[in-house]
């Protein structure tokens, strides 16, 4: 099982843009530990910034993978820049909007905006920007060979794609 950090895909523009959301619940274990108050301060549940980056990496990774119908093994190769201006906390819905900036046989660069839903008026507030680079594994690393099986886009990725009606984009 892959550890998924997005719940659903909500928008998709083929080859250019993908939006995914993640609902943050106080029952999630990470909030019990980060931060649990053991340092003498009151408990302060905050989603670790590294996991916000992972959520964007999964969103942008699906977008990049979709271009070649998930035949390529797309892996996160570089976190080009991260700017998180506000914390993500339980009760919020986080939205990841990824767009492809550049892409060729070797890989892709993506830009991403992270927003948070204000439940009071339904508006989204920008809380960060994350730019990433992905590598097409089979076209790099001096011809080193990897398993035929696409271990990057495995079971639960597929489930999210099916839920969004995007399973037509998967070549078996």
């Amino acid at each position: 099982m892959r550890w998924m950090w997005i719940d659903a895909i909500t928008e998709f523009e083929e080859g250019s843009r993908l939006v995914a959301v993640k609902n943050l619940s106080s029952s999630e274990e990470l909030f019990h530990d980060h931060f649990d108050g053991s340092d003498g301060l009151p408990p302060d549940p905050v989603m670790p910034g590294s996991l916000v980056v992972e959520g964007m990496a999964q969103t942008a990774g699906i977008l990049v993978g979709s271009v070649n119908r998930f035949r390529e093994k797309v892996v996160l190769a570089k976190v080009s820049s991260v700017e998180l201006t506000e914390d993500a906390v339980p009760g919020q819905c986080i939205r990841y909007e990824a767009t492809i900036e550049r892409m060729d046989e070797a890989g892709a660069s993506t830009r991403g905006i992270v927003s948070r839903l204000d439940h009071a008026d339904g508006s989204w507030t920008r809380i960060g920007a994350i730019d990433l680079m992905f590598s097409h594994l089979d076209n790099n690393l001096s011809g080193r060979e990897f398993p035929e099986h696409n271990f990057v886009f495995s079971d639960n990725f597929r489930q999210i794609l099916v839920s969004a009606g995007l399973d037509d984009y998967i070549d078996d």
Binding site: A77, K78, S80, E101, R102, D104, A106, G107, S109, M133, S135, N140, L141
Partner: peptide, 10 residues
């Protein structure tokens, strides 16, 4: 590093 060459190229 290796991925930086693609980044520089882009």
């Amino acid at each position: 590093e290796s991925i930086d060459f693609l980044d520089i190229s882009f």
